[in-house]
């Protein structure tokens, strides 16, 4: 019943967890991605935020910027949600579930960036937000076209050779994930990596990277 039709892509199935119509699974490939996401979520839970150091000119004085307690808690919440969404996203066995989780990763990334109180960073967060919002159309559009043309949403069925997915759906799925995973570009532009609260920013990069790796696997297997 639950066998991956082409084990040369991501290996044999290790385990599966059925939730009704949505069946999650671990293959060697998704297991590695899952462990990555788990590690970085644990880091976000455990680590303390960095404090930016400013050095005063003309003397030995330096001081650290204080991060408000509330902002730290909020960023940690967003980073952990993002980690959980990524963990689910890399192991899911349903195309619509995958697109929803990608959208959730996008919103969490907006949240992590938007909490920094800096006009430049906020500008970038807004630009990214617009991109993430219009990016949901290719995502859900791809899932809807796949549902209409193949009659199923389950990756187990879609991966079988008998089911052929139209090119437009594959391309839209990839461009949708690119739209939601574009955050690192804006993060680098805004230099938020050097802004207060740095460990949580790591989650943006990790989640985008893992979602990309996962969508590549899905597209190849289709």
């Amino acid at each position: 019943m639950y066998n991956l039709p082409s084990p040369q892509i991501e290996g044999e199935i290790l385990a599966y967890i059925p939730f009704g119509d949505i069946v999650y699974y671990f293959s060697p490939y998704t297991l590695v991605l899952f462990i990555f996401a788990l590690t970085f979520t644990a880091l976000a839970i455990l680590s303390r935020p960095e404090k930016q150091v400013d050095i005063a000119f003309g003397g030995d004085a330096y001081y650290t910027k204080e991060i408000p307690e509330k902002q730290m808690r909020f960023q940690r919440f967003m980073a952990i949600s993002c980690g959980l969404a990524t963990m689910a996203g890399v192991t899911t066995g349903d195309i619509f579930n995958f697109t929803l989780l990608t959208a959730m990763v996008g919103i969490c990334n907006i949240g992590i960036v938007a909490s920094v109180k800096n006009k430049h960073v906020l500008d970038n967060a807004y630009e990214y937000g617009i991109l993430a919002m219009i990016g949901t159309l290719p995502l859900f559009g791809a899932a809807a076209i796949i549902l209409a043309t193949t009659g199923t949403l389950s990756l187990w069925e879609i991966f079988t050779p008998a089911v052929s997915v139209p090119v437009i759906a594959k391309a839209l799925l990839v461009i949708g994930v690119i739209g939601e995973g574009m955050a690192p570009v804006y993060v680098a532009k805004a230099e938020i990596t050097r802004a207060p609260g740095a460990p949580y920013v790591l989650m943006i990069h990790v989640s985008s990277l893992l979602m990309f790796l996962r969508v590549v696997e899905i597209i190849i297997s289709m």
Partner: peptide, 8 residues
Amino acid sequence: EFLALSEL
């Protein structure tokens, strides 16, 4: 997303 973005 619309709500979050409008606050932003």
